[in-house]
């Protein structure tokens, strides 16, 4: 990324070149996400090793469902924010990201609530995997929120240019990744 600025601004280069550059960055981001998905695979495995398919009746299904719905809506707004930024609409991006931040923040708070006031015995095999898995999701969610907040602040301060567009896009995509992994974890922890 720094190399790009070193080579000069976007105006002096052809569109093709910048598109190739963007494709490179997207592929690198995909590798990053691939690496980041390993912990989730592991936690899903660990749950089946530890407690099989058991789901305790004490589990708070309602809170889980509500936070999942909130997060899925925030995923949609994050995708909408990407649309906006691709059209060069910085204000739209900021608005959409605000919604994402709010919904994502509430969803993550609810996860944190579940973590703190869990109805499960942490010494039980399901309880331990539940806590660790939700904890992983909360930490990743907090990172995602931080990245989103950074993108929002940045767009407020500097605005969107074709040069900077990718950073905004990727921060939103990272949130999309966080939500998708949570949905997978939700299905695995609450339903299967």
């Amino acid at each position: 990324m720094a190399a790009r600025t070193a080579m000069g601004s976007a105006q002096t280069r052809s569109d093709v070149e910048s598109r190739i550059e963007q494709r490179k960055m997207r592929s690198a981001f995909a590798i990053f996400l691939f690496s980041m998905s390993v912990p989730y695979f592991m936690m899903i495995n660990v749950r089946y090793i530890m407690s099989g398919g058991f789901i305790p009746p004490a589990l708070d299904q309602t809170t889980g469902a509500i936070q999942t719905v909130l997060l899925v809506i925030s995923l949609l707004t994050a995708v909408a924010a990407v649309r906006r930024v691709q059209q060069g609409d910085g204000r739209g991006y900021k608005r959409m990201t605000d919604v994402t931040l709010f919904l994502g923040g509430v969803g993550t708070l609810m996860q944190g609530y579940e973590l703190w006031y869990h109805p499960l015995n942490p010494m039980s095999h399901y309880g331990e995997t539940f806590l660790a898995t939700v904890g992983l999701s909360v930490v990743m969610g907090l990172v995602g929120l931080l990245v989103l907040a950074a993108g929002r602040e940045r767009v407020k301060r500097i605005g969107v240019t074709p040069e900077r567009q990718l950073g905004y896009e990727l921060s939103s995509w990272y949130w999309v990744f966080t939500v998708i992994t949570w949905v997978a974890l939700y299905v695995e922890l609450y339903l299967l």
Partner: peptide, 13 residues
């Protein structure tokens, strides 16, 4: 890229 996240999560557990 595959195995380091794996061991990191193990250590966190």
């Amino acid at each position: 890229i595959i195995w380091l996240p794996e061991i990191e999560i193990t250590f966190i557990l």
